[in-house]
Design a protein around this nucleic acid. Structure first.
Lengths: 117, 117
DNA sequence: TCACGACATGAATACTTCTTCAATTGCTGT
DNA sequence: ACAGCAATTGAAGAAGTATTCATGTCGTGA
């Protein structure tokens, strides 16, 4: 146990900090996908996808197996699904409180037109 | 709603992807803290702490208020606490499955004593 | 109002991480 | 064994993020 947990956590979150990797994890948390299937869903170059998959493999978040001509990926920690959902909940909450606030501005006594952000 | 959710999620996780910011959120999820209190707990330079707090403020994860001479921070989304805990669970799980595998290697026929993780 | 302590900001340099390209490996069918 | 598709790798330049230093702001108490 040389590395403090908050450091490991930060590293973990950084791994999640890329749109393509989020998409990959979302897709894999539904079911296993071959690389070419991921490629259909995510609009990036094959080699870029491979790079992102490599990042996820390094942190053991996903594992791959070869099935004939295809390589199939699956998620190692199904709990990631909950994590993504709970992130969504937080984001929706933050977005709401921000637009609530904008509403309040608009609802002031003699409020002139105030463009929405 | 111009920005796809997976992009926003990635951005969100990137803001969590720094040891100091994780520490800050952990501390704030227990109770509000003044900047000088955070400074006592986290071993970084004051101006660096300010920078990290600024990052968290930009994403509305924390808010600050002035109290006399001090500036007090609090967390906007208490659910962040759950998120951090569920991240911990995933990390522990991944770490265990990795060392299980190492154990298997060690657990050959004449397995010697096995130290607990 | 002046000086001081508590924080924040801007800007520069040093790192990391992204994206893309060219080259490579591993199967499958012939 | 070879052609051809699927996926990966390494490397290089572009883009983004971290850390630090010098400076600026905002209250408080003398």
């Amino acid at each position: 146990m040389g590395v403090p947990l908050y450091r490991t956590k930060a590293e973990f979150f950084r791994t999640l900090g890329h749109p393509a990797r989020i998409r990959i994890l979302e897709l894999l948390s539904e079911r296993d996908h071959a690389v070419h299937e991921l490629l259909e869903q995510i609009a990036i170059e094959p080699s870029n996808l491979s790079q992102q998959l490599a990042v996820l493999r390094r942190t053991s978040l996903v594992v791959s197996r070869r099935e004939g001509t295809a390589v199939v990926y699956s998620i190692s920690a199904p709990e990631v699904r909950d994590l993504l959902m709970s992130a969504r909940r937080i984001l929706v909450g933050l977005a709401e409180s921000r637009s609530d606030f904008e509403d309040e501005l608009v609802v002031s006594p003699l409020a002139p037109d105030r463009a929405a952000g």
